[in-house]
């Protein structure tokens, strides 16, 4: 079974799609694109697909990932193009690489997110002050709705880095968040800023997940498909030598 790993986006109005909406859309697009999916055995066969680390409903993303198993080998780039053409604009398939055996699971490489959060109507200096206050704290608990009811989560522990910028007059928060359980999302970061500095945006925020991957030593988010790509290009070189 050939295993492919894909990166796709959630842009524009489709940021309002939930992870279940996206799963349905992807599965139907795979059928329309006639990708030869491998199916689980048993009474009720399901296509072999794993989704990981879905961005919350309402947040846009440039870096969503999923993995599929194929019953016949296909060129990853052709699968990417065919799938992309079958999906509505806004769900764009940006990359597709073949998973190399022994390179480990993709889910393990997705332990942090770099968010860009646009805060229309918020003063950049006020935001900077709030961010400094947050970073200065050891622990900032925020109430979070989980499967088991309301629960206090330490939002500060998840925040690796945070910086403020201004673009076209709008304050922007760039923040790298570690993926813990339960996940700390942009809303939780905002709740933390409200808790430490009473920062309350007058308008809805707009969050975009810019990157997802393993946190490297410098606090950057590394490309999660890198290991697959690296091994493959090395294999290709070997083949070239032969």
């Amino acid at each position: 079974m050939q295993k492919l790993r894909l990166r796709y986006t959630k842009r524009g109005p489709l940021r309002f799609a939930s992870h279940r909406d996206l799963a349905r859309a992807l599965e139907r697009a795979l059928r329309r694109a006639e990708v030869p999916m491998a199916f689980s055995a048993g009474f009720s066969p399901h296509p072999k697909i794993s989704y990981m680390g879905a961005a919350p409903t309402g947040a846009a993303s440039e870096a969503e990932y999923f993995e599929i198993g194929l019953s016949a080998r296909r060129d990853p780039e052709q699968v990417r193009a065919a799938l992309d053409a079958s999906l509505p604009p806004g769900i764009d398939v940006l990359e597709c690489v073949e998973a190399l055996e022994g390179s480990g699971s993709l889910a393990d490489r997705l332990d942090a997110t770099r968010w860009r959060i646009d805060l229309p109507g918020v003063d950049a200096d006020e935001l900077s002050a709030a961010v400094q206050e947050l970073l200065a704290r050891e622990v900032v608990l925020v109430a979070k709705r989980t499967k088991n009811g309301l629960r206090d989560v330490d939002a500060r522990a998840a925040v690796v880095r945070a910086a403020v910028a201004v673009e076209a007059g709008c304050a922007i928060l760039h923040v790298v968040v570690r993926q813990l359980t339960p996940t700390v999302r942009p809303d939780d970061v905002m709740a933390a800023l409200a808790a430490v500095a009473d920062l309350r945006p007058p308008l809805p925020i707009r969050a975009v997940r810019e990157a997802q991957g393993r946190l490297d030593d410098s606090g950057e988010v590394a490309d999660p498909l890198g290991p697959d790509r690296a091994v493959r290009s090395c294999c290709q070189e070997e083949r070239a030598q032969v």
Binding site: P13, L14, F16, S18, D21, G58, P88, P204
Partner: peptide, 14 residues
Amino acid sequence: LAQVQKPIQYVGGE
């Protein structure tokens, strides 16, 4: 839409 349940139903693009 950011403030309502199941906002995807209002965005079209089917």
